[in-house]
Design a protein around this nucleic acid. Sequence first.
DNA 1: ATAAATATGTAGCGAGTGCTACATGGGCTT
DNA 2: AAGCCCATGTAGCACTCGCTACATATTTAT
Lengths: 183, 183
Amino acid sequence: MQNTSKKPQMSKEMLLPKLADYILKNGMGGASLRPLAKAAGTSDRMLIYHFGNKEQLITDVLAYIAGIYSAVLDAGMGEERAATRQQCVARILAQGREPAMQPFLVLWWEIVAGSARGVSGYREAGERMMSELLLWLETQMPVDDPDPVGGARYLLTIIEGSMMLSAVGHARTAREGLVASGL
Amino acid sequence: MQNTSKKPQMSKEMLLPKLADYILKNGMGGASLRPLAKAAGTSDRMLIYHFGNKEQLITDVLAYIAGIYSAVLDAGMGEERAATRQQCVARILAQGREPAMQPFLVLWWEIVAGSARGVSGYREAGERMMSELLLWLETQMPVDDPDPVGGARYLLTIIEGSMMLSAVGHARTAREGLVASGL
DNA sequence: ATAAATATGTAGCGAGTGCTACATGGGCTT
DNA sequence: AAGCCCATGTAGCACTCGCTACATATTTAT
């Protein structure tokens, strides 16, 4: 008989995008082996086979997500720099409100929580994603900014603080804080 | 025979402190009925009896924790105000580094994550805790501050941004951001 | 005194968890 | 052709999960 199932030969690399997609949509809470396997078109048996155990799988998927994060960042915004810090912050906050960014944002807080609690793999992913965002932010600073390096760190702090406040229903508080600071 | 077990008459009010204590120590991840019941000196059966279901229990415990949050805030710092915004921020960040605050901080990010994902009870608790912190922060602003209301919102944004960056291993980034901003 | 309401213990159900044992197919090397 | 290794399917184990059925003791109301 002919080879009907052309030896799928599933590998980590083929699985990671689907796993990342599922986790972005459903969060870490629903990230158990059987649903993940179903979403990736395989079985829990094979996930363990490829990744060794669940902890390693999560670590790998989070690293993968951190890896594609900067691509999403770039895709979401034009190339021209902002003219002022105020405009820079406004743009990024606006981007954070876009629907396409929501899965990242919602997952982000779970990564922060896991990192704060010391869960393996979370801290590395979170640190990397913040490093990416920081680098990217430096490239987005106004060309005439007197201190783009320090300024990027300052704006990053404010942006993340604003996002956290928004996440717990204090978007207004964050907005008023920005106004009071001149940003 | 005499009444050996003096009719315990467990009530929500008696259970909440122990439940809150356990959750502060072990986080939401370990907050399943049987361990919670054991920590509170009762049974999973009785937790459901008193709270109806787990979701309501979590909601109630988070509300209780939010309720005692401001007391912890006050207890952790003296009464005299800061002289400058810079000193105000430095004090609060120092307080956040104290061991006694760690359970709150670690739990805090789980509340933010739950709030961002829309889990019932988390948003209300998070919003309330932030409101408490904001009010308290207003009382801690320098007496001669030109805009204590807006300034408190600005400082709150920066403080929370700094704490988040620290949680993912970017404490240095946050510190450099503060320096660049003059705070 | 009787009945109703409250409070609690025991046991278990059905579903889901991470993970493993065992078998087996198909492609590879020798 | 023979043997070996990689990839995968099937079945299941021991455990935890939230929650419930049932019985029962104790207190309160009539």
